[in-house]
């Protein structure tokens, strides 16, 4: 494993870890259910994507990389479907999203 490739892979894995934690932080901070879903999608896309890319660089051109790509494809196709099902189920059950007013001054405090 050459030094540059190693460094690049660690950079990617660190970025993945960072975005995972940020997504979870958003999951805690956001004011209502619908906004929390946006935070969770950061974990699902950027966090997972960067981390899998970093691991793939570590593994090199092997069967392991192919499986990592498979895991990535699974996340990228399945997570929006699950998120959409979640949003639709919540909407059908009548959970109203908190919306911002039409003008900026109506926004008010968003923190709970």
């Amino acid at each position: 494993m050459s030094g540059a490739l190693d460094a690049a892979s660690w950079l990617l894995i660190s970025a993945g870890g960072f975005f995972c934690v940020v997504g979870a932080l958003g999951l805690l901070r956001m004011p209502d259910f619908y906004t929390r879903m946006h935070a969770a999608s950061v974990t699902d896309t950027l966090g997972a994507g960067f981390m899998l890319a970093g691991l793939a660089l570590q593994a090199g051109f092997t069967l392991v990389t192919a499986k990592l790509v498979l895991v990535g494809l699974l996340i990228f196709f399945a997570s929006p479907t699950a998120t959409h099902a979640l949003a639709k189920a919540a909407m059908t059950r009548g959970l109203a999203p908190r919306l911002a007013g039409p003008r900026a001054e109506e926004e008010g405090p968003w923190k709970r």
Partner: peptide, 24 residues
């Protein structure tokens, strides 16, 4: 697109004021 908007959402989450304006 995912990279760009992911970065935007990250900045919003880390902003202490939490500047969201949810819209349908």
């Amino acid at each position: 697109e995912i990279l760009k908007s992911g970065w935007d959402v990250t900045r919003i989450i880390l902003d202490p004021r939490l500047p969201v304006s949810p819209t349908l």
